[in-house]
């Protein structure tokens, strides 16, 4: 594999064709990530494009450090937002960034609109377009991923981006989910997927990245790794996670509450990160190449009302954002 990012994969859903372009100068000028994505958006998105029209491109881009150094685990999506009609920028973790790098792409551009629901399977050499009519309308995203997983890609070295019913119906703030617990959550990327009849994208790859000086590379890697795992830098994310913010923000009276009409919620401390950790935390998960593992998963056990001794156990991923938006903003203080 080339040591630097340079390949851009351009997929047209209308004609079911794709091409791979070498865009080395773009990546050396902009380093990758948001800088490259915004350039590509400028190139591919015509003025006055309808965010839900075939002309609105989806740009996915990663940075130069991905798959080389720990923590470089985010992929950026750029598009015209169906929510605001303005720039849509959304970031997600999971395995998307590392897998894109392993498939040797610095960026992926998806344009056009498929006539019928499709999902894409992307490797370093190929893109295949698959009929996704059977997956359309499916209630659970993990089922979609399970079906796709059973015949696509390499276990551990793949990412599955997918939308749910909200995306299909073009709800303007619908998200795209990757690896169950990470999301391109902002600005309605899910609706843009839906408008293109794009149900899912699976990417897989397992390349290696040559470096000029292996010894120095390892030394720098170790410095970063030690800082991340041994110093208190990442403690907040590692221990309680982002809900660490709940109590301090409550104390300041600055937690957005009851649809922004109040600044205090009675019994709000029930929703603190500490409370979640002691009552519900059951598993911690990480994005690929991030030792911090800030993904906190709660386990909720619910009895079936008419069937004694039957329980449903639901894993729920929680973060500050969800607690404030679905707890404080709605005025619910009972987790």
């Amino acid at each position: 594999m080339e040591p630097v990012l340079s390949r851009v994969l351009i997929i047209d859903l209308s004609t079911k064709t794709y091409r791979i372009k070498d865009r080395n100068p773009l990546f050396s000028e902009r380093l990758g990530g948001a800088g490259v994505a915004i350039r590509l958006l400028n190139e591919f998105c015509p003025p006055a494009a309808d965010p839900l029209g075939p002309e609105n491109p989806i740009i996915l881009a990663i940075g130069t450090l991905t798959a080389l150094f720990p923590l470089a685990s985010k992929c950026v999506a750029m598009f015209k937002s169906p929510l605001t009609g303005n720039l849509g920028e959304s970031h997600a973790g999971g395995r998307t960034a590392v897998t894109m790098r392993m498939a040797e792409y610095g960026a992926i551009v998806i344009t056009g609109r498929s006539e019928k629901p499709v999902y894409l399977s992307i490797t370093s050499t190929e893109v295949s377009f698959h009929d996704a009519r059977t997956l359309w309308g499916m209630a659970r995203g993990d089922t979609v991923a399970r079906v796709i997983r059973s015949f696509e890609g390499i276990p551990g070295n793949r990412t599955i981006l997918r939308i749910g019913r909200a995306g299909e119906r073009m709800v303007r703030y619908a998200a795209v989910t990757t690896e169950t617990y990470r999301h391109f959550g902002r600005m309605g990327l899910g609706a843009v997927f839906g408008s293109k009849h794009l149900k899912a994208v699976v990417i897989s790859g397992e390349g290696s990245i040559p470096v000029t000086d292996g010894k120095q590379y390892r030394a720098l890697y170790d410095r970063l790794f030690d800082q991340v795992t041994k110093s208190p830098l990442m403690k907040k994310y590692h221990d309680i996670g982002t809900p660490n913010n709940i109590l301090p923000l409550m104390a300041l009276g600055s937690l957005p509450t009851k649809n922004l009409t109040a600044s205090k919620l009675e019994n709000g401390e029930n929703l603190s990160g500490e409370e979640f950790a002691s009552r519900f935390l059951s598993r911690r998960v990480a994005c690929s190449h991030c030792p911090v593992s800030c993904i906190h998963i709660a386990q909720i056990r619910t009895p079936y009302p008419h069937d004694p001794y039957f329980f449903k156990t639901t894993p729920v991923c929680y973060d500050y954002e969800l607690i404030y938006a679905l707890g404080f903003m709605v005025g619910v203080s009972d987790p």
């Binding site: 798959a67 080389l68 590392v98 551990g156 397992e206 290696s208 990245i209 292996g214 590379y217 990480a286």
Partner: peptide, 25 residues
């Protein structure tokens, strides 16, 4: 936690980044 730090470490033995040469999955 599925961070795959072990996989990247194994690959780094060969002085390269990425995952092509890891013996642990």
């Amino acid at each position: 936690v599925g961070c795959q730090s072990c996989m990247f470490a194994c690959n780094r033995r060969h002085g390269s980044g990425g995952l092509a040469r890891t013996a642990i999955h």
